[in-house]
Write a protein that binds this DNA or RNA. Structure first.
Lengths: 333, 333
DNA sequence: GCCGTTCGTCGAAGCGCTTCGAAGGGATTC
DNA sequence: GAATCCCTTCGAAGCGCTTCGACGAACGGC
């Protein structure tokens, strides 16, 4: 059972190899009758173009690299959603996805690009000072980053507008009349790593609170129950009258609610809580949380679109910020 | 800046193209001096073989497909660890990984195989009656499954030995002197989906309990706090004297501890708890949980090894069960 | 009725690599 | 000194596909 080649299809349909190719690619006009005959043969023989040959001849592999930070400590559900939407969207553009881990580093990127294994790169979780960024600038292959490095000039970056997300939360609480609010953030290591999004959320939150003339504080927080409990307690003790809490730490969301319960605070009676997290997490909590969602799917889809546009030689904006959306549920009043 | 080809290297080193190829592949003896000259040229020019051309000529893409169940509801951390170890291990064998989602179905597998995009397939989360299994049997390309379909004949399957895992938990509790124990399992949908691992755990647990002459019960359980709380309550109410609990539901682990706390049971004073979950989850809980870990990394590594062996034409066992390991921590006594 | 077009199709030249058979040149053997 | 062998290296033939230039036929304009 030798594999079927384009020559087999051509012979079966009684046309030239090039005609088959043109039918399949649509790059030249082919008469309806011939086209149909070819397509019938393709189906009859179960023909699938050989990816290697196609890549060699056309200089396009129809594969993009997805570089994920496959280390522990990431926000897994979001990462998963993101990966899914990247794969799905890429397939819509007739591309496949090569999975790479961030720890292959710049060399790995260089390898897949130089070997023409992939046509373009999608990097997630880019850090402020990322060793891969200089390489990306030099690469002929286009790339799209999720997240922002210190200097995004010459790159294409996509991300949720975290500053707006932080601001939205503060706005919402301020609009409800809260005058003393706090943000419970990611583990401090996240801030130190300089991924950027944590700071930007905090900045947006703080600025919005200032604009509303509302007192605001913030604290990083680890993800274990005990740490969350301690952090919540400190916030309550240090800031009497605190009545609004923004949680930007998906893993801690459940613990925060439990801690508030244990400390005798009712949600939303005594304390309004807004989370920045995926919808499913917010919905599963009790009470269901008012939340700003991280639109992982949108980010993935948008990133792939931008990459495809670049592959087509189109110009794309350097920076794309996705608008956050706040959903009011039962945890704020 | 045209890309460097093997011909450029050959010219630069003053040898024939084929000589360069043989130096790089090691498939024929080349004198040390020539080899060195070629390698120097490779480095000097920054040569990277073109993947498409290589695949076309050698009929090997050096890429394997990783098919992940990228739908919600999976055990994400485990999936991630698994994916990471697959990518890392594949790289050690000089292979890359093409990421696919399960929802591409059999057609997707057929496509990547027929187009020679990949040399082999790795499927995760295979179900008892999986539509892709018949296809895999017919495919020329070798494949390895994580999980077991109803009839694994003619396939290569890897998984944690869940029956042993369930048994280990029961053994441990029985050895500690507990006479009435229960298993709190996955959401019932998991059992209904027939993924197999849930049933196998339960079977191992039940059988081991019987062997020890210990009374044992089991209940599926959803992942929300309320559901977990309700399930725990039912177990306690229906089976007075229950003193050992096995939790095979990673997402519920934290809730179970909280529920026991709320219901006035001390761990391990009143109730010993064993979890079947990744180590990090067990360690993060308080008290730290005695647990049987799901060795996701081992599974990934082993799966890739088996696939590479098959690609080399070696015979491999149809079934590989990875031995579970129980770690005693602070939740059992 | 002749010429310039357009349309549909074909043939052939690569794309960059692997691999097979063979050639050149010692070294070894009788 | 001719015959044989082994060790290195080379040349050329593809692998299956895309794409470019060209060609024949049908067509309309004058």
């Amino acid at each position: 059972m030798r594999t079927v080649t384009i020559a087999d299809v051509a012979k079966h349909a009684g046309v030239a190899v090039s005609t088959v190719s043109y039918v399949l690619s649509g790059k030249r006009a082919i008469s309806a009758t011939t086209r149909q005959r070819v397509l019938d043969s393709v189906r009859a023989l179960g023909y699938h173009p050989n990816a290697g040959a196609r890549a060699l001849a056309s200089k396009r592999a129809n594969v993009i690299a997805l570089v994920l930070p496959l280390r522990a400590g990431m926000n897994l559900p979001v990462l998963m959603q993101f990966a899914t939407s990247v794969v799905t969207t890429a397939r819509q553009y007739d591309h496949d996805v090569l999975l790479m881990t961030a720890d292959e580093g710049p060399d790995g990127l260089h390898r897949v690009a130089a070997s023409a294994l992939v046509d373009g790169l999608l990097l997630m979780d880019v850090e402020i000072h990322d060793a891969r960024v200089p390489l990306l600038r030099e690469l002929v292959e286009p790339s799209v980053l999720i997240g922002f490095p210190a200097d995004p000039a010459g790159l294409t970056c996509v991300d949720l507008d975290f500053a707006r997300a932080g601001a939205l939360c503060a706005d919402h609480l301020a609009d409800l009349g809260h005058r003393r609010i706090a943000l419970l953030g990611a583990p401090s290591v996240v801030y130190e790593r300089g991924t950027g999004f944590a700071e930007r959320t905090l900045a947006g939150f703080t600025e919005a609170a200032r604009r509303h003339g509302v007192e605001a504080w913030a604290r990083p927080c680890e993800e274990s129950f005990d740490e969350v409990h301690a952090t919540v307690k400190v916030l309550l003790d240090e800031h009497p009258g605190l009545s609004g809490l923004v949680v930007h730490n998906e893993a801690a969301v459940g613990h925060v609610l439990a801690a508030l319960r244990m400390l005798g605070r009712r949600v939303p009676g005594d304390m309004s809580v807004v989370a920045i997290c995926p919808d499913d997490v917010a919905e599963r909590a009790s009470p269901a949380l008012t939340s700003v969602l991280i639109p992982a799917e949108d980010v993935g889809r948008q990133a792939v679109r931008l990459l495809m546009a670049k592959l087509d030689g189109q110009a794309v904006p350097e920076s794309t910020l996705l608008e956050p959306r706040l959903t009011v549920r039962d945890s704020t009043a």
